[in-house]
Design a binder for these strands. Structure first.
Lengths: 213, 213
DNA sequence: CATCTTGCATATGTATACATATCCTTTCAA
DNA sequence: TTGAAAGGATATGTATACATATGCAAGATG
């Protein structure tokens, strides 16, 4: 009876949207999804409401759900928001990281320096950001970042695949951020992290511009 | 058939929690609430899930919902998060407010200067912050602030009631913020707004400390 | 007497039936 | 031929019945 059904449906729908299998604008009918997943409408309803709250789905007339269309302007706002929140977390982390976490950050940096595989680098990148996020010691702000990031996930995934220069750029930026954190310079950290997110947005915006001129 | 029932239940529960009628730790049983409001469990379920996502409710064993207990440390985190997000919005607004919005901000400031009624000032305060929030031109970040604020609402309400000095302090801080915005000094605005939220937290923390020593 | 096991009470998860609103199609009239 | 109105089709909102897991209590056994 455990709530695995609704949870599974939600995860599958998120995966589908993030992986681009579900086209923006595509209707998400309760009945159709229920039949597709072989469950009743109830857990599907729950999953759809969670999608809506995560801003991955919208409702139109007839209160029907559909995959949210992300306009270029929306994505710009989102990345700006991520930049502000993540840079705030980084600034806090600059003063709050433990000695062990500082060493860990340095180790992750080194791992990234010698890694050339885009996929592996993506995982290292994730650990770098996770360390800073948890090191800020503010779960409310961290949860906020997770919420925002969920919506950019589909786009961020392309970051290290479609642009080879991005990997080198990311390394340099990570190095600068790490140095600022180790120096406990909160404002420098904030500024560098904001730039880092902005530069990752440039790649995404470029991809978007080529897709929808 | 419109989704007014679940929406109403949610609003009523939020009001109850914010107004302090529902004690933290109090169980929120679907069946009991359904009978209390004279509806079925379905819309109650939906409302409870939304409460959980807003972090106003938690689930324990047996997956039962209960009103979230806000510890002092949680509240500190929350206000820190609000401070970071709202100061980010203010910094953006410093460069993005239209001329009309600048004049509006000045007018609100003047209204606050000549107002001595705590309740009326609370409304003016809300408009001051709303103007900055919408002036930042980032709906994702604005929605993030709304999310965070929902959880501090119960505490913020006490701000202008239990402490008379708070009103005078708020006025001075609003003035400084407005001046920084009018000067389009984003970093000064950010810093001032962060301090402003922090000083409103001091009042709340003080109340909390007296309640639970 | 204490502890473990078993069974019941109850709360939530899921399925389904019913109510209702919206949209689209069809038909009738101008 | 076109437009408007009415009715049906269908999708979501709500209610309720059934399934199942969890916690507590009572009884049996060591």
């Amino acid at each position: 009876m455990t709530n695995r059904t609704a949870e599974n449906i939600f995860d599958k729908l998120v995966d589908g949207i993030v992986a681009g299998k579900m086209i923006p604008g595509e209707p998400l009918a309760e009945k159709a999804l229920a039949e597709q997943f072989g469950v009743s409408r109830t857990p599907v309803r729950e999953a759809l409401h969670r999608l809506e709250q995560s801003n991955l789905a919208e409702r139109g007339s007839r209160r029907a759900f559909f995959v949210r269309k992300m306009k270029a302007a929306d994505l710009a706002e989102l990345f700006e928001a991520v930049g502000e929140v993540e840079s705030a977390l980084a600034a806090l982390a600059a003063h709050r990281l433990t000695e062990i976490e500082r060493q860990s950050l340095t180790a992750i940096l080194e791992e990234g320096r010698i890694c050339d595989d885009p996929q592996a680098y993506g995982e290292i990148n994730a650990r770098f950001h996770a360390t800073i996020k948890s090191g800020a010691r503010n779960s409310a702000l961290a949860a906020t970042l997770d919420d925002l990031n969920l919506r950019t996930l589909a786009w961020r995934a392309a970051n290290f695949h479609e642009n080879t220069n991005r990997l080198a750029t990311s390394r340099v930026e990570h190095q600068a951020i790490t140095e600022a954190i180790l120096a406990q310079d909160a404002e420098a950290t904030r500024s560098l992290m904001r730039s880092h997110v902005a530069s990752s947005y440039v790649v995404v915006a470029d991809i978007l511009a080529r897709r929808e001129p």
